[in-house]
Amino acid sequence: MGEIPDADGIGTVGNPVCGDLMTIYIKVKDNRLEDIKFKTFGCGAAIATSSMITEMARGKTLEEAMKITRKDVAENLDGLPPIKMHCSNLAADGLHKAIEDYLEKKGKK
């Protein structure tokens, strides 16, 4: 957990009003996620999904990482209570947004 100061891509999802806000930072090398960290304001489930996705995505190619779904994250945590599936299970969205951010920045270079 924490921040990557010179991140290649950053993705923020959620809304503090709902009680969950998450930022995913990624570092990319040779099309692979060399490092991934998170910052999360949220309940236990939100922190757990953030932490889980960093473990699931580290070392994966960008294409593989884009394929990780909310369901995969929840399954790797042995399930989440139904009420948490929507609000707190933001990590996959956050990761995808960070990768999109990286690709966009790269495209501009």
């Binding site: 009680g19 969950d20 304001f41 949220g42 309940c43 236990g44 939100a46 922190i47």
Partner: peptide, 25 residues
């Protein structure tokens, strides 16, 4: 800057039961 449920779970790990203003549960 922090959310009540994660506080509750962290305090629970220290053996302390409290409730949160946030009704996340």
């Amino acid at each position: 800057y922090i959310e009540g449920e994660s506080l509750i779970l962290s305090l629970d790990a220290e053996g302390i039961s409290v409730s949160s203003g946030s009704a996340c549960t």
